[in-house]
Simulated assay, not measured.
Amino acid sequence: MSLDASSAPSQASASAPQAWASEQQPAQPSEALWQHWQNLKQAQPGLRARDAAEQLAVSEAELLACHPQSLRLDEDWGTLITDLRAVGPVMALTRNHAAVIEKTGPFEEVSIYPEHGMGQVVGEAIDLRLFLRHWKSGFLLRETTDTGVRESLQFFDGNGTAVHKIYRVKATDTMAWEALIARHRWPQAPALQVASAPAAPPAVADADIDADGLRMAWEAMRNTHDVFGLLRRFQVERRQALRLVGSDLARCLAPNRYQTLLERVHEQGLPVMLFVGSPGCIQIHSGLIQKRLVTVGPWYNILDPDFNLHLRMEAIAESWLVRKPTDQGVVTSLECYDAAGALLLQCFGLRKGGESESPQWRALLDEIAYPEQA
């Protein structure tokens, strides 16, 4: 089970005062950009770097490059991730434009596959699937906040979109953290290069898709990961495939069904797996939703000890109930998409090893998908 390793970067705001970097040009640290960023933060207290970058028509990586308290990191991503095992607990954050997941804990089992440009971190708290071929720049950032100095490692793809962030916390081993920075700092780094995101290829029309063949291949899946090869084989987009395979395998639901699901999971004490992805990382929460579910502005939030999820509900255009056949039986999930068809978040019932899906989980999703029959 995994989320696609791609998501559309945010588009620049139409009201942005000035574009500070042009396509395919090196993004140099800029005093002017830094000053405009500070002015923007003063006018909009609490403004996040991602949103500031959008308003200034630059990438988030370019903002960090102009920050006087940022330091470039070398590009040996596999070694850096492996070295994080020594620093103890950190807060790991992965996001797209509508979903943010934050987990606090140590980096435990790390596996890097350089021949494939991939890696993974597997632990009780931090669970990541890394698409390192998309990682193009990294920074140490020291920020002065109302509560003190906050330090983080932030990584970006070739378009300057954040793929993953790691924050130092109180329990982080100070000496190990500083030693990691000393090993991976890159004081003579070349100028940051950013590129505009390529336009998405035109979608194949539904009428040109072998819908019967697609359904047969879907029914023949033996593992949830088989869906990626299936999409390539039939040259079909993910949400398009859901439309074509038949309503018994994929059913479109109202966008707010995701909020209903999270509330029911919390009430019933059902353990789940939540997947949030960026262009270069998928981060997973496995376990219960324990404490608080609260709406703040446009964001619906899970606020648990050592686990937060923030979901911008207005960005969800569709929720889909999806059934995938596997060797362990049918695996059922709820997926949410934005208006452009980007996958934002997935939720599965928690399964371990070769376990089958929980009947209670399946019954809950049926109740959400078919409320008239409940």
Rank of each mutant, 00 (worst) to 15 (best):
T104P: 10
T104I: 08
G105F: 04
G105K: 07
P106I: 14
P106M: 11
P106L: 06
P106A: 12
E109I: 11
S111E: 10
S111K: 15
I112Y: 08
I112R: 12
I112Q: 10
Y113D: 08
P114Y: 04
P114G: 09
E115D: 15
E115V: 06
H116P: 07
M118S: 04
M118T: 14
G119N: 02
G119V: 08
V121T: 09
V122E: 12
V122S: 15
G123W: 08
E124I: 03
E124M: 09
A125P: 05
I126A: 09
D127T: 12
D127N: 14
L128G: 08
R129Q: 05
R129D: 05
R129I: 01
L130M: 00
L130W: 01
F131G: 04
F131N: 12
L132Y: 11
R133L: 13
H134N: 15
W135N: 03
W135Q: 10
K136R: 14
K136E: 06
K136C: 05
K136I: 14
S137Q: 01
S137E: 09
S137L: 06
G138R: 01
G138D: 05
G138I: 10
F139G: 02
F139Q: 00
L140G: 10
L140N: 04
L140R: 02
R142Q: 06
R142Y: 09
R142I: 03
T144L: 07
T144N: 13
T144Q: 04
T144W: 11
T145W: 13
T147V: 15
T147D: 11
T147K: 11
G148I: 10
V149S: 13
R150N: 10
E151P: 01
S152W: 14
S152P: 01
Q154N: 12
F155T: 07
F155Q: 01
F156L: 10
F156D: 01
F156V: 07
F156Q: 01
D157R: 09
G158P: 15
N159Y: 13
N159L: 06
G160V: 00
G160K: 01
G160Y: 02
T161N: 14
T161F: 04
V163A: 00
V163W: 00
Y167D: 01
R168F: 03
R168D: 00
V169K: 01
A171T: 05
A171W: 14
A171I: 12
A171F: 14
T172I: 08
D173W: 15
D173K: 08
D173V: 15
T174Y: 14
M175F: 15
M175K: 08
M175I: 08
